[in-house]
Amino acid sequence: MLADLMQKFEKASASYAASNSIERDPDWFMLKLQEEVGEVTQAWNRLTARGRARGKTPEEMKQDLSDEVADLLGHVLLLAHHNQLDLIGSIERKWRFDPAAID
Rank of each mutant, 00 (worst) to 15 (best):
W44N: 05
M1C: 04
T41R: 11
N45V: 14
E59C: 02
A12M: 12
F97T: 00
K8N: 03
E60L: 12
L77N: 02
V40D: 07
G89F: 13
M30V: 10
G89D: 10
E35L: 15
K8W: 07
K62L: 14
V37L: 15
I88M: 05
S66E: 12
F97Q: 00
T41S: 08
S66G: 14
K11A: 14
Q63L: 12
L2S: 02
D67N: 13
M61Y: 02
H81F: 12
F97A: 00
E39Y: 08
G89R: 08
A80W: 06
E35W: 15
K8R: 10
L65N: 01
D67G: 04
H75E: 06
Q42I: 15
D27W: 15
L72A: 01
A14V: 08
K8V: 03
Q7K: 14
I91C: 07
E36M: 03
P26F: 14
A80L: 07
A14R: 15
A70M: 15
V76L: 11
E92V: 12
V40N: 08
R46Y: 09
D67F: 11
W95F: 12
R50C: 07
D4Y: 09
D25K: 11
F97K: 00
A14M: 10
A3E: 14
L78M: 13
D27C: 04
L77V: 01
M1N: 04
T57L: 08
Q7C: 04
F29D: 00
D64R: 06
Q63V: 13
S66T: 13
Q42P: 03
R93F: 11
H75D: 05
L2P: 00
A14L: 14
D67C: 06
Y16Q: 01
Q7I: 06
K62A: 12
R52G: 03
N20E: 09
A3S: 09
G74Q: 03
M30R: 12
L47R: 13
G38E: 05
S15G: 00
Q63M: 07
D103Q: 04
D86P: 13
N83Y: 13
L33G: 00
N45M: 15
H75L: 11
S21R: 03
L73V: 13
A12G: 03
R52L: 08
E39H: 15
D103V: 05
E59V: 08
K62P: 01
P26S: 04
A14G: 01
A100D: 07
R24I: 01
W28E: 00
S90C: 09
D98A: 07
E60D: 08
L85C: 04
L5Y: 10
D27L: 14
E39M: 12
N83V: 03
L79N: 03
K8H: 10
L85S: 05
